[in-house]
Design a protein around this nucleic acid. Sequence first.
DNA 1: CATGAATGAGAATTCATTCAT
DNA 2: TATGAATGAATTCTCATTCAT
Lengths: 228, 228, 228, 228
Amino acid sequence: MTSRPRSKTQVQTRDPAATRNRILKAATEEFAKRGLAGARVDTIAARAKANKGMIYHYFESKDSLFRAVMEKAYYDIRSAERALELDRMEPVAAIVCLVKFTWNYYLDNPGFITLLNSENLHRAKHIANSAIIKEMHRPFVALLQTILERGVEAGVFRDGIDPVQLYLTIAAVSYYYFTNRFTASIIFDRDFTAPDMLKERLEFNIETILSIVRCAKTPASSRIEQAA
Amino acid sequence: MTSRPRSKTQVQTRDPAATRNRILKAATEEFAKRGLAGARVDTIAARAKANKGMIYHYFESKDSLFRAVMEKAYYDIRSAERALELDRMEPVAAIVCLVKFTWNYYLDNPGFITLLNSENLHRAKHIANSAIIKEMHRPFVALLQTILERGVEAGVFRDGIDPVQLYLTIAAVSYYYFTNRFTASIIFDRDFTAPDMLKERLEFNIETILSIVRCAKTPASSRIEQAA
Amino acid sequence: MTSRPRSKTQVQTRDPAATRNRILKAATEEFAKRGLAGARVDTIAARAKANKGMIYHYFESKDSLFRAVMEKAYYDIRSAERALELDRMEPVAAIVCLVKFTWNYYLDNPGFITLLNSENLHRAKHIANSAIIKEMHRPFVALLQTILERGVEAGVFRDGIDPVQLYLTIAAVSYYYFTNRFTASIIFDRDFTAPDMLKERLEFNIETILSIVRCAKTPASSRIEQAA
Amino acid sequence: MTSRPRSKTQVQTRDPAATRNRILKAATEEFAKRGLAGARVDTIAARAKANKGMIYHYFESKDSLFRAVMEKAYYDIRSAERALELDRMEPVAAIVCLVKFTWNYYLDNPGFITLLNSENLHRAKHIANSAIIKEMHRPFVALLQTILERGVEAGVFRDGIDPVQLYLTIAAVSYYYFTNRFTASIIFDRDFTAPDMLKERLEFNIETILSIVRCAKTPASSRIEQAA
DNA sequence: CATGAATGAGAATTCATTCAT
DNA sequence: TATGAATGAATTCTCATTCAT
C-alpha cells in the first residue's frame, strides 16, 4: 500500500500484439535453450525487452506460456511443410523433398527439437488438450497417404506402407542425429556438426527412406532369416 | 544408561558403498523423470533414504552427480550390448539382434532416453571430459565394423556402409519413437504405447535397417531422380 | 467512414458520477470481503466494470479509496438509524428498536463489520482526520442521551447510565456474534447462521440491554463493592 | 546449478524446537499486527531471527503457519482460563472472575482479537478442520454450564440461561470495546485507551453480566462476595 | 472521461549447498 | 559416516500505480 515509485520508461511500445510476440519469441528461444524447468521467466522478460508482469498479463503462467510456444512451434513447421506443396510433386521427389525439408528444418531450428523433448519429458501435458494442434496434423497424414498411393500407382513404391510409420522414420533419422549430436560427437569421436558430416548424413538418410518405400525387386526369400 | 533412540526414517546402514549406490539409483530415477533442471536434490535424498549431506559427500554437486549418472547409464547399456555377443552371430542375425536389443532397451529403460536428452540440452558438458565414456565406445564401433565386413564377405550386405551411420539409424528409428511417444500420440491420434503399436513399430524398424544393409539387386538407375 | 468498433466489456457511460459510484460500491464489496490488504485494485475495477485508471482518477490511491468507503459506510448506517426517528418513540421502545436495528443492520450488512475490523487493524488511520465522520456521530450520542433521560423521567430507566457505554454494549452483543460467527460455529459446534440461532440471539440481546437500563428495584447500595 | 555461495553464519542455534518457537512467536506478532494478508513472511523471518527457508521447513506455507498461530492462540487463552479454576469458586464470583479475566486477557493480548478477526474474515477456513481446537472447547462450555447450575441451586442465578449465549455476551462486551477502540475513540471523541475509561468499562461490563444472570428477587446481601 | 498496456518493487516459495552435531 | 537444521540467493508470480493513446 505504501505508494510505489514510478517507472523509468523502458520500451513502452503500447503495441500489445508486438509485445506479445516479443515475449513469445523470447520464450521460444529460452525454452529451446534451457528446457522448461531450466528456463527463467526473468530471462524471457529481459530478452523480450518487456517486464515480468507483461508475461503474466498475456500468458497466465510459465506453463501456459510454454504451451503457447509449443503451439506456435508446431504451427510453424507444419506451415513450412505445407508451403512445399508436396501434393504437386512426383511421388519419389515428394518423399525426397520431405526428407530434405525435415533435415533442414531441424538443422535451422534446433530449438524445435529441444522443445519437443521438453514437452515429452512432461508427457505432453501442455498440448494434451490442444484441439488446434490435433487439427493441424490431420491433413498432414492425409497428404502422406496420397503421396504413397500415387507412388504405388506409378509403380515406384511398394504397397502397404503405413504413412505414419514412414513419417516417424523420416523424422527419426534426422531428429536423432540432431538431438544427440553433442553426446554422439563425444562417443564416436567425430564432429557431427561439420559440414561434411551433415552432407553425408542427409544422403544416408535419403537412401534409407528410399530403400523403405521403393518397389523392391528383391525376392522375398532374402528376408527370411529375421527370426529372434 | 539406557540405549539411545534410533534416528527416525533414515536407513543408517553405515555401509558407504550401499549408500552411494542408493543415491546413484535414486538420482538416475529423478533425473530421468524430471530432467537435470527439474530434478530436486531433496527428492533424490528422500528416494535414496539418505540425506542431502551424503549426496554432497559422495558426489560434490548436483552436476557432478548427474555426470556419474550419465557414466553409469552408458556403462549399463554398453554392458548389456556386449553381453549379446554379436560377434558370435551371423551378420544378418547380429544386426537384427542389435535392432531388437536397442528397441527393447529403450522400451525397458525410457529413462536412458531422457537422460541423454538432458545431457544434450547441456551440450554434453558433463561427459565432455569423461575418458571412460570414450573408451567404452571404441570397441563398440569396431564390433559393428566387423559385422558389416563379415556380411559383405558372405554376400548378404552391401559394401561401403559406414558403421556409425548405420548405428545412428538403428538407434534413431527406436529412439525417436520412444522419446516422442507422448506428443506423437496426440498428433497422430494413436496410442503409441499400445502393445500392437509397439510390435508393429519394431517390425517396421527391422525392415528398415535390413533394407539399408542388404545387398540390393536393384539397378542403380532407379536412384537417379533424387534431385532437390 | 464506417463506425469504429465499440470497446469490449467496459461500460463506457461517460457518466462520471455513475462511474465513481460503481467504483465505490465495488470497493466496498471487495474491502468487505477481503480486508484492506487482501483487496485487489484489479478486482475492484473489474467489479465496477471500470478500469484501474478511473480508480486513481477519482480516488488517488487504494488507501484513499478505503477512506471513502469507510465514510460512506458510516454515513449509511447513521442515516438508516436517523430514519428510525427514535426520538419520537417511547424510551423503552426506542431502546428495543435500536437493539433490533443494530442487529439487523449487521445481519444485512456483514461487510460493515469487516470494514470496521480492517480500519481498526490500521488503528483508524484512514478516518482519523475525517471531520465529517466526527460530525456525523455527535447528534447520535445526543439522541441516546435524550432517550435515557426521558426514560429516567418516566421512571422506566435507572439513572446514571452513560449513553456511550450503553451504545457500546448494544453494538457489542450483536457485533461480536456476527464478527465471530465462523470461528464460534466451530468452537461451539453450532451453526450460528441458522435462523433459530439468530432469533434466539436477538431475543437474548434485547433482554440483556433491557436488564441494563431498566429501573431495578434493587437498592443501589448493593452494587458498591465490585472493586477490581 | 551454478554453485551458490556459503552462508555468513547468523543465528545457528541448531535447536529445532527453539527455532520453531521463535518463528511461531514472530508470526503471532506479525499476523496480529497486520492481519493475514498484510503480514509479510520476510518480516516474520527477520523477527524470528531465522530465514524464510526455515518457515517453510517447519510450517509448509503462510496459511499453514497462520493455522498454527491460531491453534496456539486458542490453546493459550483456554489454558489461562483453566488456570482460574472457576469450578472451585462460588457461582457469582466465578462469573465475575471470568468477566474480569476475559477483559484482562484482551487488554493484555490485543493480538488475540485481531487474529480472530483475520480468521473470521477468512470464514474460519484455517481452523475448520482442526480437531484439536474443537476438543479444547468442549470442557469449557461444560464448566460454564456447571457454574450456572450451581448458581441456580444456590438461588443466586436465574434459571434457563444458555451458557453459550452468556459466554458470547461476556466475550462480546469486552471484545467489542477493544476491537473497535480506535474507530470508537474518533467517533465518540474519547480516548478509550485511558486508564479511567478502561476501569469504567470493566465495571459496566460486570454489571451487565450480573444483571443478566442474577436472580432478580435475590436479597442484596447475596451479591457481596464478588471480590477478585 | 476512459482504456488497458506497461512498470518495477515486492511477495511467497523453492532450492542447491553448507555445517554443527 | 550420517543427520537434518540452517542459509540465502534465486525463482515464480503479484500488485499498486503510472501513462500513452
